[in-house]
Amino acid sequence: MHVSLDEARSSFAALLASRLAAHELAPLAACYGRILAQDLSALVSHPSATDSALDGVACREADTLQASPDTPARLRLIGESRAGAAFPGAVSTGEAVRIYTGAPLPDGADAICPVEQLRDAGEGHTELLRPASPRDVRHAGSDFRAGEVVLRAGQLLTPQRVALAAALGHARLPVRPRLRVGLLSTGDEVVEPGERLQEGQVYNSNLYGLLGLVQQSGHETLMLGSAPDSPRALSQALERAGGADLLLTSGGVSMGRYDLVRDLLIEDGEVAFWKVRMRPGGPALCGSWRGTPLFGLPGNPVSALVVFEVLVRPALTGLPTRTVRLRAGENFRALPDKTAFWRGVLREGAVVEYPKQASSVLRSLSESDVLVIVPEGQPVRAGEEVEVMLS
């Protein structure tokens, strides 16, 4: 039942499709951390009028081209323009208007000289110690224009994007439903951080890594803790999820005697796929248990978190995995039948392999910069471009 990455993504997205199909309109103050459900266009242009980027004077550039501290340009001040109170007239040759940041540019003016480069000349005049610059003029619509699509469906609504949505003129935003995701780690060896660790045990790091990744993807979490290697205990732990929209488990999906999540879905659920042609994370399992979608992540910490980024996050956000291309600083080996996601480090404009690639080396994800994507059977040579996912 091995599937390709594309098949795995499509299959899991189909399981969640009905739960993510609808959207709701939420007020701006309730949108932080949500996922935008539709493209968002500007209702207005920004700036709404051509204005000044700084405090100074607005004038004609041609009047100031020879201005310097030794030969300043002398202009007559005829008024001022400030935000909310534009100068009503026009600027002619030899004239200037005091202007403040964000204030509309008067008719006739095409450049700004900053206040630091002005000198009072008395009798209603000012002297410019350098030429006025058109670069300090912000033209109407230079940020965005009315009707322009500025935010895209699937984007996480960070504070910066909520502020942008407000500037676009929207008081309410279409957001995707916030799924309730149950998180469960499995295995007799798993204990909570802070407890005394016995030989052979491990702390429940997967739970807390997945908690952050789900929240970053715009959804809520339900912490189910850990379940020992017992079919009854596993079922009871999953039952605590109540009305969860999705169950995410870690561990118990490989081929061992105690890989009980796999057995649970085979015997008491439905399996959409088991095993993906990728490394790390090949044993990933997807299906449903009692009508609730379930994604079984491997127990090794690196595998669990990488599989989430590659397969789970795209389904939760509706966005494809974001990648860029970099120069390979060394050879990256390929696997004959799996897409490899090697941890990589940036060195002098190129990417090289992190020295420890074992799935149990959790610090490697913290210390690496990217995941280097090497397709099945296609090794990458030093100096070639390689596709990477940013960590």
Score class of each variant (00 low, 15 high):
D6I: 09
E7L: 11
S10R: 15
S11E: 10
F12D: 00
F12A: 06
A14F: 03
L15G: 03
L16V: 02
L16G: 07
A17E: 11
A17Y: 03
L25H: 11
A29R: 15
A29S: 12
L36G: 01
A37H: 02
Q38D: 11
D39M: 04
H46D: 00
D51E: 13
D55E: 15
C59L: 12
A62L: 14
A62F: 03
D63Y: 04
A67C: 09
L77K: 11
G79L: 12
E80M: 13
E80S: 15
E80H: 15
A86L: 06
V91Q: 08
S92M: 04
S92H: 13
A96G: 04
T101K: 12
P104I: 06
D107A: 15
A111R: 07
C113N: 03
C113K: 10
P114G: 10
Q117V: 02
D120H: 01
G122R: 05
E127S: 08
L129G: 08
A132M: 06
P134Y: 00
R138V: 14
H139E: 14
A153H: 05
L156E: 01
L157E: 05
A166S: 08
P174T: 02
P177I: 10
P177V: 07
L179I: 06
V181P: 12
G182R: 10
E189M: 12
V190A: 03
Q198T: 05
Y203C: 13
Y208N: 07
Y208D: 07
G209Q: 05
L210P: 06
L211W: 09
Q215T: 13
Q216S: 14
Q216E: 08
G218M: 08
S226A: 15
P228L: 10
S235A: 14
S235D: 04
L246R: 03
V253Y: 06
M255W: 11
V261D: 00
I266P: 00
D268C: 13
K275I: 02
G282F: 10
A284W: 02
A284M: 05
T292N: 08
P293F: 08
P293C: 07
L294S: 09
P301Q: 07
V302Y: 09
V310H: 04
L316K: 03
L319W: 09
V324P: 01
R325Y: 06
G329T: 04
E330R: 13
E330F: 04
D337F: 12
A350Q: 15
V351D: 08
Q357W: 02
S359R: 04
V361A: 14
V361E: 13
S366Q: 10
E367P: 12
D369K: 13
P375D: 02
P375N: 04
R381L: 10
G383K: 08
E385I: 05
E385V: 05
V386F: 02
E387I: 11
V388I: 05
M389I: 15
